[in-house]
C-alpha cells in the first residue's frame, strides 16, 4: 500500500514507530506492506515514489527539523495540492493539527484526495466536526474509503464497536464522557482541588494542551459527538448544531454537594434527538461515573439496551494504533 502522510508530530511519529516495529507482523498477519511515498510537515515535504526510509524521517524529526531538509528527496516550503495529481498512491493519512475554525489545511486536503479517488485516514477532528456530512458524501460519491477511528476514543475502538458490534440493532441515543482532560479535572476537584490547580496538574501530566480551552469549554467533546452522531446515528449535523457548555463554572462546592447525595458531576456529551455537551449531575454508581482521564460512552440501543465502553482515551501511541486498524481495514477493502 502506497501512502503519503500529512503531519509528523506526536501521532505521525508514533505511527511511523509502530510501522517500523510491527513491520513483519503486519505483513504476515494482514498482508499490510506500507510504503511511505511522501511526508509533509509545516515547513516542507519529502517525496520518493520508491518509498522513503522511515528511520530517516524519524531521525530528522527527532532533531526538531523539517522533513523538507531530508537528503535527496526533501523540499522546503509549502506543499501545493496539485502535487498529489502527479503521484500514484493509495492512501493519504492526515495527522495535521486540529483547526476548529475552518478545518484547514485538512479540509481542502481531504476533499482533493477524494476527488483523486484516494482513500483517506484522518486523526484530525477539525474537518469532521465542521463538515462531516460533506466529507461522507464526497467519499461515497468518489467510491473511496474514509476512516477516522483515532478521532474518538483514541485507542479504544468506540466507532467500530458501535458500527459493527451493534450491527442489526438500532442505536437510539449516545451519552458519554469524551474528553480525558475535563474528566481528570473534575475528578481532582472532587478530591478538593481548585479548578486552576487541577488544570495545571493535567497540563503537567501531559493530558491537556498548552491552550486547554477547547477541552474545558466542551468543544473537543462536541466535536467527537458530531462524529459519533454522523457515523453511528446517521445524523447530518455539524459543530454548529451542538449546544455546548464547558466546566469553567463548576466549583468544588458543587461537587461536594453532589457527593453528599451520592452523586457526581461529569461533562457529558449526548445525542438523543438534540445534541449537547453539558455538566450533568449523575449517580456515583452509574456506568459513566468513571474517574481520572478515562473516557466512557454508553450506546442505548433498541434491543441490546445500554452498552458502555470504557477506555483510556487519546494519546499518541493509542491514536497511531487506531490508524493501523484503519489501514488494515482499508487494505482488506482494496482486495
Amino acid at each position: 500500500m502506497r501512502i503519503i502522510i500529512f503531519g509528523c508530530g506526536i501521532v505521525g511519529r508514533s505511527l511511523l514507530e509502530l510501522l517500523k516495529v510491527r513491520k513483519k507482523e503486519l505483513n504476515i498477519s494482514y498482508g499490510l506492506a506500507p510504503k511511505i511515498l511522501g511526508v509533509v510537515d509545516s515547513k516542507g515535504f519529502a517525496i520518493n515514489t520508491e518509498g522513503l526510509n522511515i528511520d530517516e524521517i524519524l531521525r530528522i524529526k527527532d532533531l526538531g527539523r523539517s522533513v523538507g531538509e531530508m537528503e535527496n528527496y526533501g523540499k522546503k516550503g509549502a506543499f501545493e495540492l496539485e502535487i498529489l495529481e502527479n503521484i500514484e498512491f493509495d492512501l493519504l493519512i492526515d495527522m495535521t493539527p486540529t483547526n476548529i475554525v475552518n478545518g484547514e489545511p485538512a479540509l481542502s486536503l481531504i476533499k482533493r484526495a477524494f476527488s483523486l479517488k484516494l482513500n483517506v485516514i484522518t486523526t484530525n477532528k477539525g474537518p469532521l466536526a465542521l463538515a462531516m456530512p460533506l466529507l461522507l458524501e464526497l467519499a461515497k460519491h468518489n467510491n473511496v474509503s474514509f476512516r477516522f477511528s483515532g478521532t474518538v476514543g483514541g485507542g479504544t475502538p468506540l466507532l467500530d464497536f458501535a458500527k459493527k458490534c451493534l450491527m442489526g440493532d438500532k442505536i437510539l441515543a449516545i451519552r458519554g464522557i469524551l474528553n480525558g482532560t475535563t474528566n481528570y479535572i473534575l475528578t481532582e476537584m472532587e478530591k478538593g482541588k481548585e479548578f486552576s490547580e487541577a488544570l495545571r496538574e493535567a497540563q503537567v501530566k501531559g493530558f491537556a494542551e498548552a491552550d486547554p480551552s477547547l477541552d474545558i469549554d466542551g468543544i473537543d467533546s462536541a466535536s467527537k459527538l458530531v462524529i459519533l452522531a454522523n457515523w453511528i446515528l446517521g445524523k447530518k449535523i455539524t459543530l454548529k448544531d451542538v449546544k455546548v457548555q464547558g466546566i469553567r463554572d463548576i466549583r468544588v462546592k458543587d461537587l461536594e454537594d453532589a457527593k453528599k447525595k451520592g452523586k457526581t458531576i461529569k461533562l457529558i456529551a449526548s445525542v438523543n434527538g438534540e445534541a449537547k455537551v453539558e455538566a450533568e449531575t449523575i449517580p456515583k454508581d452509574s456506568n459513566l461515573a468513571v474517574s481520572g482521564s478515562l473516557n466512557a460512552v454508553s450506546f442505548i440501543s433498541q434491543y441490546a439496551g445500554e452498552e458502555t465502553i470504557i477506555g483510556r482515551g487519546a494519546g499518541g501511541k493509542e491514536t497511531a494504533s487506531s490508524v493501523i486498524r484503519d489501514m488494515i481495514e482499508i487494505r482488506g477493502l482494496m482486495g
Binding site: A131, P133, E137, H141
Partner: peptide, 17 residues
Amino acid sequence: DSNFGEANPLTEATFYQ
C-alpha cells in the same frame, strides 16, 4: 457530479459550501 447535461447536486457538499 460530473454528469454533464443533467448533473445531480451533491447536496451535503453544496449545503456546506
